[in-house]
């Protein structure tokens, strides 16, 4: 039994709009074509060069390496659902692998869209620590191997949208009221003018679920890492303020308040009593419970925090924890059983 506490084993997770802070650095080795053009042999050579560096030692604690060869489809899917790997990495059929630390706060993907994607995640508002984690790994690698780097363009990446710092910093937010009121769309347009963007729970190209959104920087060139993070923090605070304002408005009117309270307790009621339930419906109901919990209602009776519930009901993690592959109908039944077991 693994006793190391995961980053998401935090009692306060899901009691606030801001769920987690995340940093990703995109890096490429100078002596290889970018991942898209690597043949299988080159990809294996590139990966083993980086593994050698990691074997010489990292100060960031114990890292486990998961190569594509020894990772099952379900394990990969579960890692994607936990944001340890990206959608691009999940779908990539070439040689690939990733390092992950015991608390799952740090993962390093090899042969993603770029050769190296270092990413770190911390619970709550802790982006500076997330940056330090990734930055330390980056420094160890770049002291031992030549990166594709240009004095003018910075860290060179496969897509010019990542060139420069190669930094994507993001905050995971729970924004049910902005979503339901339709204001989120306008907000997305406004923040794009500040070089920021809003993506789904699992990043680029993924659908939002359970009203979870990632707010991140779009611009990576011409601004320092410190300024990118500072701007992101300012924009995120504005979004949080807007969501808070909508939440406060509900409680001002007694009729609205009772309707709201009724809805969140009904959502909890369905979750506690259902016999089968799909992922999307579960996410919507858990989102209601998270919102109620956040607004001071004693609605969460689960043994674990709601964000962890949101992860554990995902198809990959559900199957991984049960240790078997299931059809959709079977998953829905097992999901309902799992939810009940958490009460």
């Amino acid at each position: 039994m693994n006793s190391v506490k995961k980053w998401y084993d935090n009692e306060d997770l899901g009691k606030d709009i801001l769920i987690s802070s995340r940093v990703r650095l995109a890096r490429n080795l100078k002596d290889y074509p970018f991942s898209m053009l690597l043949n299988k042999d080159q990809a294996r050579d590139m990966i083993s060069e980086i593994i050698d560096i990691f074997e010489e030692g990292m100060s960031s604690g114990k890292l486990n390496y998961m190569s594509a060869d020894n990772t099952s489809d379900i394990d990969e899917l579960a890692n994607f659902e936990q944001n340890n790997i990206s959608q691009y990495f999940l779908l990539n059929k070439n040689p690939k692998g990733f390092f992950i630390n015991e608390s799952e706060s740090l993962s390093i993907m090899l042969n993603e869209e770029d050769h190296i994607r270092i990413q770190s995640i911390c619970a709550g508002d802790d982006i500076n620590n997330a940056f330090i984690l990734s930055d330390n790994v980056d420094n160890v690698i770049s002291s031992k191997i030549d990166y594709a780097f240009d004095d003018d363009f910075g860290f060179l990446t496969s897509c010019p949208t990542n060139v420069g710092t190669g930094l994507r910093a993001s905050f995971m937010l729970h924004l049910p009221m902005l979503e339901k009121s339709g204001q989120l769309k306008n907000l997305v347009q406004i923040i794009s003018k500040f070089g920021m963007t809003v993506r789904g729970w699992h990043g680029e190209g993924t659908e939002p679920m359970g009203s979870l959104y990632q707010v991140s920087n779009q611009i990576t060139l011409g601004k320092s890492e410190r300024d990118i993070i500072k701007n992101l923090r300012n924009v995120t605070q504005q979004i949080i303020d807007q969501e808070l304002k909508l939440r406060e408005n509900i409680l001002k009117d007694d009729n609205n308040k009772i309707d709201f309270e009724d809805k969140i307790y009904r959502s909890f009621g369905i979750l506690s009593n259902c016999k089968k339930i799909g992922t999307r419906e579960t996410m919507n109901l858990l989102s209601d419970v998270m919102l109620g919990n956040c607004m001071g209602f004693d609605v969460n009776k689960f043994k674990i925090n709601i964000y962890k519930m949101m992860m554990y009901i995902q198809p990959g993690l559900l199957q991984k924890n049960l240790g078997c592959k299931l059809k959709e109908q079977e998953r829905d039944i097992e999901r309902a059983k799992f939810i009940k077991s958490m009460l």
Partner: peptide, 22 residues
Amino acid sequence: LLLVLKNIQGSVKHIGKVPVKN
């Protein structure tokens, strides 16, 4: 790339970290 980066990034000059080796 100068044209593209000017449009999508608003800048063509990296400011920030450099690799340790550099």
